[in-house]
Each structure stands twice: as structure tokens, then as C-alpha cells.
Simulated scan of single mutants.
Amino acid sequence: MNHFKILILGFLISLSFTGCKEEYTILPSEDPILLSTNNVSSLIDNSIVFTATKGGEEITALTTIYVNGEAIQGDTFTSNETGEYTAYATYDNLKSNEVVFNYHDGSEINFKKRVLIEDYTGTWCGYCTRVAKAIEQVFTSTDNAVAVAIHRDSSNPNSATYDPFNYDASVLENLLNTPGYPKGFLNRTILWKNPETEYVNQVLDLTQGENPKLGLAITNSLANNQLNIEVNVKKAKNFGDLKLVVYVLENGLIYEQKNYTNYYNGLNPVPDFEHNHVLRSCLTDLLGDNIPKEEFINDVYTVNYEIAVPGNVENSQNIEVVAFVIDENGKAINVRKANLGEDQDFEQI
């Protein structure tokens, strides 16, 4: 009986292997046409560019590209209507894969909102500790603020207003037309009310409300005293004239600070005061470099800087990079800070 069961089991196993066999013929392969696009989502009125390849070679010029079933001229498509689109290419009776992309009006894309604080200060300025303390209070309340300390007034060691970190920002100050120190400006054009420590909410309010339709991302690296910086600007709507400002700052600078306030234990001067976010170099014009509208590719503008570490930098490991975009009225739309070696993505929300 056991012998019979073994025979039956062997027969069933044989059938199972036979049933799994499939007769087929190997056919010569045909390299497919692969269609790709430079962007799967774009702001209306901007161009989508297609690329077709076959067997690793570009054949775009030899293909006919269809968008929503209609042939287009060349490899570029533009629409002023929002919605989803489907594209494919044909070549020599072959059809490519389908590519789906969309056009939007920017209403669904926003970026994290940050506020710029430009602090006009000086180691010789006894009341400038008031703004320094206010900035500390801001940082305690939010991480959406970016500070820049623009030291003034003289680079002459024999001057009563000597500051070893002095940076000539007179062209900017003349535009703001607010004499005296200290003074803080928010998003470049808004005067921070005095005393700043009692108006921290003025800064915090600028981090609230409607999110901007423009964001920044910074990548930077340091090698052999060479600083490489890439700044990317992304827009989610069409703007007027825009300008970009890029700063190189330094943290951890130790120098005594005059102090006519009760802050910092009322010491005057404050010995070994740590000066942070100190402006060391401006890689653009202080009033900003124009961003050509035609250089926004897929809503993104990219600019690279390759420079030697500024000679006034004491410790290159304490470098940070700040970039912001200003509108035609000189107001900062958004700002971003990057620590040394940081590689950022857009803060899209």
C-alpha cells in the first residue's frame, strides 16, 4: 500500500512540473523610445521641454511629440491653463511611454516664511547691546528669523568709533536714511521699533500670516580655503523685478563691547563679548543683483559662487551663508541661512 502511494505521489509531481512548462520563442529585442521631461509640474506660461531617447541616444528631433493627443511643434510645450497633461512621442511606427505633467497657478505651493533682521551695530556703540539682546529674545521665540550684524563705523584703530569688524554699508544706509546707531531693519526696509527688546513681537509678526510664494535653498562647501556656494531660488507665481543678495557671515568673534544698558549684567565694557552673524563679505551688490526672468528654469533660478575665503574671516569653520530675494521696492520677500557644509532643499509647504 505504501509503495502504491509513493508511485501516485511521483506521478502527481511529474504532472506539476510538466504543467509549469511554457512554450515560447525568443524574439529579437527592440529598444523602446523613452520620453522624459525637464519638469513634471510647472507654473503656467512656463515651458516644458521633452527629451526622447532610444538605445541611449537622443532622437528628440526625429520624433513627433503629442500632448493630450495633439502633435506639437518641436520639443517644447507651454500652456496658460492649469491642469494635468499627458505626453508621448512617436518614431518609426513606435510609441514611447506616456509622461504625465501638470500646470499650476502657484496657489497650492508655498514656502516657509522667514524674517530678515539687519542689525546696524558697533563694538564702540554702548546702546547696541539692546538690539543684540532683542535678537537673542527673537531666537528664543522662533527659528524663523535670520540675523545679520552689520558693524559700523570706522576701520581706523585710532578712532573713537573703531570697530575691528567694520563693513562699509554706507550705500545701503544712505538708502534707508535713518541716521544713528543702534538700528535694526526687518526685511530690509521696516525699521524695528525702539526699544527693540519691547517690540520682539514686531519681528515675530513678520513670520506669521500668508506664506511667501518664493523660497531659497543654499548649498555650500569649503575645501583648500575655497568656498563654493550655490543659491537656488524657486518661485510659485510670477513676480516683478527681483534681486538677490548673498552674504558671508562669521560667528564666534570675540571682542569687548561697550554697554550703556543693564543687559549683560550691566558691565561696561563687556569683556570677551561674542559677536555672531557678523557680515564679512557681500557676494552681490549690497542692493542686490538682478535676477533675469528668463533665467528661471522650471521656476528655479540658480547661481554659483566660487571664492577664496574672505581675508577678514578669522575662523573659516564659523562661516555661515545668508541669501535673500528683494522685490522692486527693496523689501525682502524671503530669506534663508545655511551653516558651513549644509546642503539644503526648498522649504516647500
Rank of each mutant, 00 (worst) to 15 (best):
K193W: 11
E230I: 15
S221N: 13
S170L: 13
L216K: 04
A160C: 00
T129H: 03
E210T: 07
T140W: 01
V246L: 05
L191C: 03
N166L: 14
T219S: 14
N166H: 07
T178H: 10
L214P: 03
H151G: 08
I229V: 11
H151Y: 07
N228M: 10
N225F: 04
K237D: 02
T142L: 11
A236T: 03
F185L: 15
K213P: 07
E230M: 15
V148K: 00
N156Q: 01
S221P: 09
A169P: 06
S221V: 00
P182Y: 11
V138Y: 00
V148C: 09
L206E: 13
P212M: 05
A147Y: 14
T219D: 13
P182R: 14
L176G: 09
T121K: 10
T189N: 13
V233T: 10
Q137H: 04
Y247P: 00
V146T: 06
L116P: 08
S154C: 11
N238F: 07
S155G: 15
V131N: 11
K183N: 14
Q208I: 08
L172Q: 15
L172H: 14
K237G: 10
T123C: 04
I190K: 08
N187L: 07
V148W: 05
S155D: 15
V203E: 06
H151W: 03
P157T: 06
P212I: 03
S155T: 13
E118R: 12
A160S: 09
A236M: 03
P157C: 07
A169V: 10
P212K: 01
E210R: 02
T189V: 09
A132D: 04
P182H: 11
D168F: 13
D153A: 11
H151Q: 03
F139W: 13
E196P: 09
P157H: 05
P195H: 12
V148E: 05
T189W: 02
D119E: 00
D163Y: 08
D241K: 08
T219N: 14
K234D: 05
L249T: 03
L249Q: 07
